[in-house]
Each structure stands twice: as structure tokens, then as C-alpha cells.
Amino acid sequence: MLPFLLLLLLVACQSGAPSLSVSLAGNLIESDLYPAASSQAAGWQIGFDRRLEPKEDVRQIASLANWLTHQTGLPISVYVSHNDGRTIVDDLCDGDVALAAVGTVSYLQAHDLCGARILVRGRNGDGNDTYRAAIVVPADSPLQNVADLRQHTFVFGAPNSTQGHLIPRLMLQEAGVALEELRAYSFSGSHTAAANAVASGRYEAGALQDTLARELAQRGLVRVLAYSGFYPASGIIAGPDVPEKTVALIQQALLTLDPAGRDAAALYQWERSEMPLGFVLASDEDYETLRHVARTVGLLEP
């Protein structure tokens, strides 16, 4: 009697969890299965310049999109562009996205290409609405200044990155170091990749956003060779087809964003973004200097 009861108990314990009966070997679907009809939801799309890892960028911008939706009532969602050669500038000017969190280069390109408007620009960790770039070397590098970079390898971030390419090009130019004088250079695609390339020693120097460079230097992974001057920070831009009222509504909402306080929980690691303390109103005139440099280095159409 007792063993029987125990066996019943054992069986009962074993079969307690609910389960679904499925077949893994039958009724197979041979062609590609697309779980969603479109990867992009309806409403306003917000794209972004890739700064960190794609997933981190997506999570940050997605949290901002959700926040904007909540604040404005507008259906705003993140837009993920596949690595198919198209840039956020293309997507914005083609109308695939209405908004974009981009750096200076992309804004200048979009504005230059299709008249995109800048709504706000970010405030950095110090509360400034400008940012700068840094050139870093490995911690044990003998290089002491930018001019020492001649005949050394150099890694940039993304080609259209303000802090990863545009401002460092200006720094090299100001130091009198032409690209051809470098032993080799390449574009890593992001600040993170560039930092890895330098910290690992694969490149003798690299260009990073200033906040990341300072953080890595504090941890002893790299050493900052030089900081650039301050330039208007990255911002949120709108495509040419976005109605003015929508632009104004979104712009007003963005100006109220409080990432370090009230809205911190709604945002994903916003302190790692280029606008950790929110936004300030921006205008196209703020970017004239950089527009000139961009045009000089060939990032804008002549």
C-alpha cells in the first residue's frame, strides 16, 4: 500500500508541469518563414546613427521612441536599417524614417541632400550642448602628440561619424598630418570597434568620442593623446516630409526630456548616449564650422 502511494506521489510530482504537445519532425515548412509582414511598424519611424553596438543603439533609440510615444501620443517606433549599404541619410531623405538620432555629419549630409531639419541637440555629461573627439593610443604607446602619428596605423570609427571621423580628421589636419602620411588607416564602423582596435594593439592610434575615451583611459586601457575642441553635439533631426506640427510637437517633447531624473527609468542606459542630460534647442547655423570641414574632407557633396 505504502509503496504504491509513494509511486503515485512520484508520478504526480513528475507530471505536475503543464506541457504542449508538438511535433519537431512533422509538418515542416521548407521555405523561409517571416514571422512579421514587415520589420517596421506603422507610424513615425526614428532611425539612428550607429555609435555603439547595433543592439545597444537600437535599445537606446527604442526607449526614446517609446518615451516620445508616451509623451506625444504619436506612434513612434525605432527603425532598424539593415547593413545593406544604405545610410540613415538615405532612409531619411527617402522618407523611410521621419526622425533620426544622428551625429553632425549625418545631419549635414541629410540637410545638404534633402533639407532635413535639426530639432534639438544633446547635452553631454557636463551639461554642455557640445562635444569633442579624442585621439587615443595604447596605454604603453610612446606616441606623445598627434604629429607623432605619422607612419603609424590609425583607426577611425564610422565614416560618417562626427566624433569618430569628422572631428579627428580636423584634428589631424590641424596637426599637419595627412592621411597619406599615416602608415595605414581604416574605419572600424563604431566607437567601440575603434576602441577595441586600439586597446588590443591592432592599431597604434584611433579616434573616439571624448566620453568613451576618458572612461577607457581611466580604466588604463588606452591613453588619450589629444582632445579636440568643442563642437555642437549630436541631435535629433526630422525628414523633409514630416509636418511642421509634428516636428514642433516632437521638438517640444524632446526639450522636456529629463534622462538623469524623471525619465531615467523609461530610457535604456541613456547615460551612455551622446545626450545623457537631454536636449537643447538647435539650429542649422550652429553647424556651419563643421559643415565646412565636412565639405573639406569630402563628406558632403561639393
Binding site: L24, L28, I29, E30, D32, L33, P35, A36, S39
Partner: peptide, 29 residues
Amino acid sequence: FGPGTPVVHTFPGGFPADLTYLLSAHNSL
């Protein structure tokens, strides 16, 4: 699967139709 991508799987003969119910687009489970 990701945004706009098909389902990438490890089933050698094809994707089991029974599992489509487990995709977020079809089943909250």
C-alpha cells in the same frame, strides 16, 4: 529572427509548423 528577417533555425528538414504558435506574432506564450 530579427526585424524583417526570416526565421533562422537549426532544423535540418524545415521549420516545424507546430512551433509557429510559439512565435510572438502568433502566441503570447
